[in-house]
Design a protein around this nucleic acid. Structure first.
Lengths: 209, 209
DNA sequence: AATTCCGGAGAACAGTTGTTAACTGGATGA
DNA sequence: TCATCCAGTTAACAACTGTTCTCCGGAATT
């Protein structure tokens, strides 16, 4: 199935990944528009000019980071939303909490650059989020509760859920940033997020009244 | 009432405002963490060192911009949310649309720096948004619909509304950024935002079932 | 075995950055 | 009127930036 790469290609991908990792680390404390090319190469331990072998610019690197951060998340969201009944919200909140705990830098990057100063990156994130919304809409459409709904309203609801997920992720992130990261604080965020989603679901149930 | 400032103080405030204006303009295409001190002074037409007479750093300037962008908005939000009945949502959406049209750069700045790379600015925005949420909660508490609600749930609902307002503002902004800003597109955003808020309100009405 | 390919190194470019110190000249207050 | 204040200036600092061109050495290809 997977063709074994030559020594050359393998090494190249390795350095490329080193660039992504280093950049992601540096972006914990600044935004992409202030990330310097030399800064990244220095962190990787490589000559400045080596950067151009992998990326056209830091904006280009940013777009690659968007794919890394969100690309592999689609199936997880899909299966989570596919869960029926009251468990759906519980699982969704847990998914978010776990993902933020496992990949805080990725989440921070997305939250930061969604409205950030680099246009191509903003667009890449917007496109990915639109994909999420579309996938959520498709799953919601399978629900018996979706009977009588038109596509526009379902997509509107899907966007509401997706935005809510992002807000929740960002709140979990702040939880980790606090000087004394407490489990209690995290529980509170989960509690509030769960109730907000429940409230939205309630609105959904009575939409056609 | 208002004490007339001396020539000196008046001139100083004038230059300070020039700094804020110039910075806001520059921040349309980058984030605060990449905004250079010299860049701003150049735009104002003043020596680099003059900057220090007004701000400790660009982060300091950013905090001042947060106050300028959100400080005067509290009464407007308050009176809008104070509106009772079905008109509340309509007026809220119109308030957002008008405000974005009147002060796009301010809105962009807030959306961008809310999760941006400069900690003091993030905190300033977070505090202001918490104030908004608290004020919205206080207004919602006056509703007859709020009977039986506890304070935590009301605050949760208020946060939901505030976040929703910000998302809507950001969407209106994208509307202006598009190559061909059309009234139709703006209407669509208003339409979706209105429905989302209606759905949330529906959920609110059935919360205590 | 000989040749091409190509990721990375090295040096140099002009231009930029934040911050310091000492200064000028008009407004301010005694 | 005279001394003080203080917003803004000038000059200089070392450090940093993105980008170009030339080169090297090992992998890949023939």
């Amino acid at each position: 199935m997977s063709h074994t790469l030559g020594i050359r290609q393998a090494q190249k991908q390795k350095t490329r990944q080193a660039f992504l990792d280093a950049a992601l680390a540096l972006l914990e404390e600044q935004s992409l528009s202030s990330l310097g090319l030399r800064e990244v190469t220095r962190a990787v331990g490589v000559a400045p000019t080596a950067f151009y072998r992998h990326f056209r610019s830091t904006a280009d690197l940013g777009v690659a980071l968007v794919d890394e951060a969100l690309g592999s998340l689609h199936p997880m969201v899909r299966t989570t939303v596919a869960t029926a009944g009251a468990e759906r919200i519980t699982r969704a909140v847990r998914l978010i909490a776990d993902h933020v705990a496992a990949h805080p830098a990725h989440v921070r990057f997305i939250a930061r650059e969604r409205h950030g100063g680099v246009q191509p990156v903003r667009e890449a994130i917007r496109d990915q989020l639109a994909r999420f919304a579309e996938e959520v809409r498709a799953e919601l459409a399978k629900d018996p509760e979706a009977a009588g709904w038109n596509e526009d309203d379902l997509l509107m609801l899907a966007h509401l859920y997706v935005d809510q997920m992002l807000i929740t992720a960002s709140l979990f992130l702040e939880t980790l940033e606090s000087p004394e990261p407490s489990e209690a604080e995290r529980q509170r965020v989960a509690q509030v997020a769960t109730r907000q989603m429940r409230l939205i679901s309630l609105g959904r149930q009575h939409w056609l009244d």
